[in-house]
Design a binder for these strands. Structure first.
Length: 189
DNA sequence: GCCGTGACGGTTGAC
DNA sequence: ATGTCAACCGTCACG
């Protein structure tokens, strides 16, 4: 059953994407189904853009590169560039928002925030990305920034990022995904 | 041509 | 163990 969409009923888009090719392009990757957007960029539907791309976006914007150029150069839709840049201006964070979880979590968030930080400190091996606590962005980021008096952002961002990268690499070697991923890599030419 | 925005199909994770 | 549901994601296309 069709619901009446907002004001303009944007467009009941066709069965999906890529009217040019007629079918969604897929790209095999160890992580799952990668897809290719109109600009030729690879993305995973439903998942955030990789961190280094997000970083590049804000970095280029920082250097005065126009969003449309960033979009074309990085092959990321301009909507996404706009969104990431807007969020960066608002929150100062390049990170995606918290995906998943339930509503009641928000109520517990205020209480749980501290415990998450503690937990992360006590379990440095636990990758936030993997545990789903990678929701350090937005309001949380703001709270932390306030707490620590304006620090954070880029340095902290990079700190966390490189830590996570390191961790994910180390963990990947011992995880099923890592093993499978390795196999995939080896299977490739 | 650029950019803000909303629908869409998708993923995630707490409950 | 499984299902539900509300959050988020990036793309696409309109205006």
């Amino acid at each position: 059953t069709t619901v009446l969409f907002g004001k303009a009923m944007m467009r009941p888009t066709l069965a999906h994407n890529y009217p040019r090719t007629g079918f969604p392009l897929e790209v095999s990757s160890p992580l799952g189904q990668g897809r290719v957007n109109q600009l030729g960029g690879v993305f995973i539907n439903g998942r955030p853009l990789p961190n280094h791309i997000r970083h590049q976006i804000v970095e280029m914007a920082h250097h005065g590169v126009r969003p449309c150029v960033i979009s074309r150069q990085l092959r990321v839709s301009h909507g996404c560039v706009s969104k990431i840049l807007c969020r960066y201006q608002e929150t100062g964070s390049i990170r995606p928002g918290a995906i998943g979880g339930s509503k009641s979590k928000q109520g517990a968030a205020a209480d749980g925030e501290k415990r998450i930080e503690e937990y992360k400190r006590d379990n440095p091996g636990m990758l936030s990305w993997e545990t789903g606590t990678y929701w350090r962005s937005g309001s949380i980021s703001r709270i932390v920034r306030c707490k620590f008096g304006g620090k954070l952002e880029e340095e902290e961002e990079e700190e966390v990022e490189s830590k996570e990268l390191e961790e994910s690499e180390r963990r990947a070697k011992h995880s099923i995904e890592g093993i499978l991923g390795d196999r995939c890599k080896r299977a490739l030419p």
